[in-house]
Structures are given as structure tokens and as C-alpha cells.
Write a protein that binds this DNA or RNA. Structure first.
Lengths: 228, 228
DNA sequence: ACAAAAGTGTTTTCCATACACCCATGT
DNA sequence: ACATGGGTGTATGGAAAACACTTTTGT
């Protein structure tokens, strides 16, 4: 093995959530060169005996305080241009993480330097992170159509209206609440009723749902056609 | 950098084509341990100053004799379980390559040990290549629906019937030739007429097409619903 | 003439959209 | 009572499936 060039391998995370001001990405500010003081995706080196998804989970936990499977986590892609890191040959495996807007504000974690930024204002990131973020956004937008991924942005129990807000935020569109309701409740395995309804809200109480067992949506939730 | 664990990085290729006996994958037979004599996906180590897609192209050229952009090539995913290679910590970036059935049988290349095997009989591959192959097949099947990827299995000029054979082979279904014809010719940017027709075939000559400029299909070519 | 494959027209069925309308709660 | 949001019913338009039918070649 020693005859082959050594690489450093990192994982970087595109962590997305939905907040009052729209879709937001978790960024850290770099404290050391290269790209000192620049915003960057959270990430770090993979350990010698660590699986890649495990490394991604660890980094996510370090930055958000989330333990285990509270978030959706999937591999996004690998970026390995020879000059992407001035320190040497570093290949990074990017992961996409989707989280509900956390009610508990990440107390007592290493997330000191991390902050949420609306995706529209996440620009001029360190390394090739602009591209990685763009790829992550594109992936999220596309997968909402044909997978139940939108539920990853919701807490364990949620209403149809909350789910619709996810679609409207990620896609930056408006959806007809009535047809949306019929679509998602009619797609097998997408949602299962939690058996209770909301209280104390304005208007008629809404049924509460949990994520269903489906891994793909048939039929898909079609994105409206402003160009495409 | 020296404080972080060194990894070896390889690229592995899932090279698919369509032959008379169906969908086939390019495999080599390993000549050295580990997994000596086992079939494996072609691949190799990434060089120090080599970009990842470039390494994939190089490996593809070495195994098939194909120069440059004669094939579709896309990143499939990265596999880095700590124990996946007994020789040490090796992370592999898998690429998916789609080729037309080559009329010229790869003369005079290093492809001595490489051979096409129907995907149904590609089993018990070295390392974690069974899983990588399965992921590649799944990716190819899914992307036929909403991208013009099927044309990557066709020569530069082809007929609608040839294209339909691609779909039928990859999906293992039958498609109505008449509705299929209408669909693909009616999808903007999918196909552009080459202006000529086939000769010397049985039946009425078919119009010849080339790949169009579209990168996504609207509407998609829907896969029939045997379960799903 | 006939077989074979390409391609078109037509009917039917289904689904998405649009939107009128009713329901259940807070104020 | 009224506003607010949840949820259902229904008409309509367009696309996809099913398939009859025509076209153009080789044998």
C-alpha cells in the first residue's frame, strides 16, 4: 500500500433546516488558515477506524448536539480536485443533513461558532463549499418530489400545513392547501395519523401525522412548472 | 496534515452496456490477492495530481479503449467502510459509465482480462462490489425516467426502436411501441432528427435521431407499475 | 401478395387543477 | 357573529393508455 499516494479524507456537511425566514444552512466561521474568517460548511477529518456515515454523524453531533437518528443524513457526493485544499491532497465526502427547526437551541455543545444562515445569503464559502452547498440544495429540492424527504424537516408529529410549508419554502412556490392535503394524505405510506388534533391554534384544529413507512412517493408530489 | 490518518483513494467503475442477451456489466478477474481469481469491478488508484473524474476516465480508457467523451460518466457514490479492503484503509469513489454496445471489439487494449457479464449473473464480486453494482443498477434504472440517459446506451445515431429496446432491457418490461414513439418524439429536446432513415431492415424504414440538448425530461418517461 | 416494422388517429380513462363549499375552533 | 384555517366535493381540461388503422419497406 505504501507505494500509493496518501490522501486525507474529510466529511463535510450541508445541514439544512427551515426557519421563520426560510431555508437555512448551518455554517461555521473558520478560525485558522486557509480561508481564515471565511464561512464554511462544518466538517472534519475521518478517523482511522471510522466508517464514513459514522464520521458524518459524529460531526453533526458535534455541531448541533443532535444524538443519532434525529436527522436525515445521506451521502451527497465526493469532491477531490487536487488543488481544492492548499494544505495537500484532501478528498471530502459531503453529506446532506435535514433537520426540523430545533425548539431547543443547541444548549451546551461545541456549536459555539456555528450559525444558521438563509441559503440565499450563504456566499463565498471556503474551499469548494459554494458548489457543495449548491449541489445539496439541488438534491433536496429534487428529492422532495419523489421521496418522503420533506418529513425530515418536520418534528416527529406534524400537520399537513407544516408539511406544506416545507415544500413551499424549499421550492419557493405557493401550493394550493386543499389539493396538497388530498395529495399527501392520498399517497400510500407517506403519512400515518397520530390520532390526535392540534389545540389552541387559530381556526379549525388540524389532524396530526407522523412519517409513514414509504421510501418513495407514488404518485410524486409534482413541483409547479415556473420554467423548469 | 501529517497528523491525520492517511487513506488510499481508488476509483471503481460500474460500466454498463446493452448487448443481445441484455444488460451487461464489465468485470475483470483479479490476478492477485486479496480476492484472487474473483470477479471485480475495474478500477485503480487515483494519482497524486489527478482529478477524480479524470481518474475514472483513465480507468475506463484502460479497460475499454474508449477515448474521452464517448461514454456517459457520472459519480455514483463513495464507499469507505474501514474493513472493506484487508490491505488497509481504502476509500473508493465509484463511477457509473454507460456505453453503447461497441461494434469495434476493443482491439489492442489492456482489456485482456475484462469481459462483459449479464448483470443477473454478476454475483460474488470482490470487496463490496456487489453493493456498488446494485447501487449502479438502481441509479441507471431510476435516471432513465427523468433524464435522457438512455441515449448513452445508443450509438450517436439511432432509431426510436433502438431507444425503446434500451428502456425495455434496463427496466425488464415491455413498452407499447406506438405510445413510446409519441412520448419520446414529443418530449422537447430529447431527440433531434438526423434527417435520414434506416435502409435494408425488415419493415418500414425508421427515422434516425441524435441525442437532443435536454438534460431533464418533462414530462418523464414513466416506468410501468409492476409493483413499485 | 404478404409479413414486418414504423408511425398516426381516436377513444377512453384517469388524474391534476381550480374553486365552491362546509367544518371546527378562537376571539 | 365573525375571522381563520382545516378539510371535502365536484367540474373541467389535458395527458396517458389502449388499440384500430395506415404507411413503407423486404421477400
Amino acid at each position: 500500500m505504501s507505494e500509493y499516494p496518501p490522501f486525507a479524507v474529510t466529511v463535510d456537511l450541508v445541514v439544512l433546516t427551515i426557519r421563520a425566514d426560510g431555508l437555512a444552512v448551518l455554517l461555521i466561521r473558520r478560525g485558522v488558515p486557509p480561508y481564515e474568517d471565511a464561512p464554511a460548511l462544518p466538517g472534519g477529518f475521518v478517523r482511522v477506524d471510522e466508517d464514513l456515515p459514522r464520521a458524518a454523524e459524529r460531526e453533526l453531533a458535534e455541531e448541533t448536539g443532535l444524538t443519532g437518528a434525529a436527522a436525515h443524513l445521506e451521502q451527497l457526493g465526493t469532491y477531490g480536485t487536487p488543488d481544492r485544499d492548499p494544505r495537500g491532497r484532501v478528498v471530502t465526502v459531503a453529506y446532506l443533513a435535514l433537520l426540523p427547526d430545533l425548539p431547543a437551541p443547541v444548549a451546551g455543545t461545541d456549536a459555539a461558532g456555528a450559525e444558521w444562515l438563509p441559503v440565499a445569503r450563504a456566499r463565498n464559502l471556503a474551499f469548494d463549499h459554494d458548489r457543495i452547498l449548491a449541489d445539496g440544495l439541488e438534491r433536496a429540492r429534487a428529492k422532495l418530489e419523489y421521496t418522503p424527504l420533506a418529513t425530515a424537516f418536520c418534528p416527529p408529529e406534524f400537520t399537513v400545513a407544516q408539511l406544506r410549508t416545507v415544500y413551499e419554502t424549499v421550492w419557493e412556490t405557493r401550493l394550493d392547501p386543499r389539493n396538497f392535503h388530498r395529495k399527501v394524505t392520498g399517497t400510500p405510506g407517506f403519512l400515518v395519523p397520530a390520532g390526535r388534533a392540534t389545540e389552541g391554534e387559530r381556526g379549525r384544529p388540524a389532524q396530526v401525522f407522523r412519517r409513514g413507512p414509504a421510501t418513495a412517493l407514488h404518485p410524486p408530489i409534482i413541483r409547479p412548472t415556473p420554467d423548469r
